[in-house]
Nucleic acid binder design. Structure first.
Lengths: 190, 190
DNA sequence: ACCTGAACACCGTTCAAGT
DNA sequence: ACCTGAACACCGTTCAAGT
């Protein structure tokens, strides 16, 4: 056998990686997507360099925490597309997305940033999700349920903006569902 | 004369204060409302402690930079109220506000934060402006031009959210006017 | 009365030295 | 092959010492 399997990572490296992710989930839940990476390393009981070795950028860490969610939402869009009327499918997907978008403080900002930053590790998984949602939008527009001058980026930006509002203050967070329905209602043709 | 005038600040203190504001305007224009205060002091050629003496918090400095703008917008609302039909007056005011809201990166976030934080120095001047705008909203609703389930805070949050979107990426910034019109259009009764 | 900058407690990021 | 933590370049904030 001249072509061998690539060696599996060393056991200690695997343990460290898992430990970082476990702690990162907690710390990001507490502090948001801008959480202190030093704090993550400290609480995981590993050296700061080890964290950077496994996750060279903050986005690489976030991507690992969030890609499942993005993949699930992309699959959800595909499922809704084939089982629901266009307007329903879009409304339901946005509602599902919006619910998760407030999982972490700063998440709306992190997601919107990936649109522009193609070097971000979050770019690909987030783009796939956006494209799946874009098809739902297109269908809803073809059915006359959404005005024609809205594109997928507009919709994504607006939904994240409502998520951002909810991040800013508790009293605004309480209005989140209402603000979202105002915005979505407003996208219907007059 | 037993009750004397309060003494005018020392000449050097006055000069320092003016110099801080001058430099802060530049640095905030460059770096946004989260600009480094250390950088402001450095570029103003004054000690860091002097900056903190004149402006104990970041918001106190921002308030001094921004209160003129808020006062002008409050006055603008009053003027529009007495000269234009309700729907026009509101649309024009929001357009004026939105234009200024992108003057500095981070400004939308700073403004929205003052809603909740009553200890912020920006709270009072921003509240007065919001109340003036709230009257325009009420008039527009009474005239049937805006749906009834929108309050002043909703409108303020949404307009700032669109400003925030524009902060996130150049490509989104180019869609700002379109996104704003989408949102405002959407607030009309269906 | 006011100014100054060192001091303290934090960051993110890199990298030489270790195992 | 991987881990570690010191080192560097930044923050915000406070305060003892100066003029």
């Amino acid at each position: 056998m001249t072509d061998e399997e690539p060696r599996a990572p060393r056991a200690d490296a695997q343990r460290n990686r898992a430990r970082i992710l476990e702690v990162a989930r907690t710390v990001v839940a507490e502090q948001g997507t801008q959480a202190s990476l030093r704090d993550v390393a400290r609480r995981a009981g590993i050296g700061l360099g080890t964290l950077y070795r496994h996750f060279p950028t903050r986005d690489e860490l976030l991507e690992t925490l969030l890609s499942d969610r993005f993949d699930r939402l992309a699959a959800r869009a595909a499922a809704l597309e084939s089982t629901r009327p266009p307007a329903d499918a879009l409304a339901q997907w946005v509602s599902d997305f919006a619910e998760g978008a407030t999982a972490y403080r700063g998440l709306a900002a992190s997601m919107l940033a990936t649109i522009e930053d193609e070097t971000s590790s979050l770019h690909a998984s987030c783009l796939a999700m956006r494209q799946a949602a874009g098809r739902l939008l297109g269908n809803a527009q073809a059915a006359g349920a959404v005005r024609a001058d809205v594109d997928g980026t507009d919709l994504f930006a607006l939904v994240n903006a409502v998520g951002w509002i909810a991040d800013q203050a508790p009293s605004l967070s309480a209005r989140r569902a209402h603000l979202l329905s105002l915005v979505l209602d407003g996208l219907k043709p007059h």
